[in-house]
Amino acid sequence: MGIRFVLLVNKQGQTRLAQYYEHLTIQERRALEGEIVRKCLTRTENQCSFVEHRNYKVVYRRYASLFFLVGVDNDENELAILEFIHLLVETMDRHFGNVCELDIMFHLEKAHFMLEEMVMNGYIVETSKSNILTPIQLLDKAS
């Protein structure tokens, strides 16, 4: 498994989206989110985007007030994950049009649908934005 979890938090450290690909109890999740958010959010712009936490790495990237944090195995290609985060953001941008925190909050299920089309069980499924968005657009049209 490459990706262990994808987290989206705002500047205040509030979780806005969380998808885990390994099972954690609610207590474990809260603890983990607290720890890594504290670790990542205190880092400055010119420090590198990788933080070693417990037995895995967190690759994170900041977009305005939103932090995208991806937990990966130690042997994962960190630069590729960084690129993946960017792809996720671009996909959301294409759908929402300059995505912001509120878009994700109020359309949480759509954000999940997109992520679901991109990552499954910790592996990358699809990297083409239009392929990712097609099912979601169909759903929009239907409703």
Partner: peptide
């Protein structure tokens, strides 16, 4: 569809 800064599907290549 797969281009990222001039490279075709780096994810697949990796």
């Amino acid at each position: 569809e797969y281009d990222i800064s001039g490279i075709t599907d780096p994810f697949l290549q990796i």
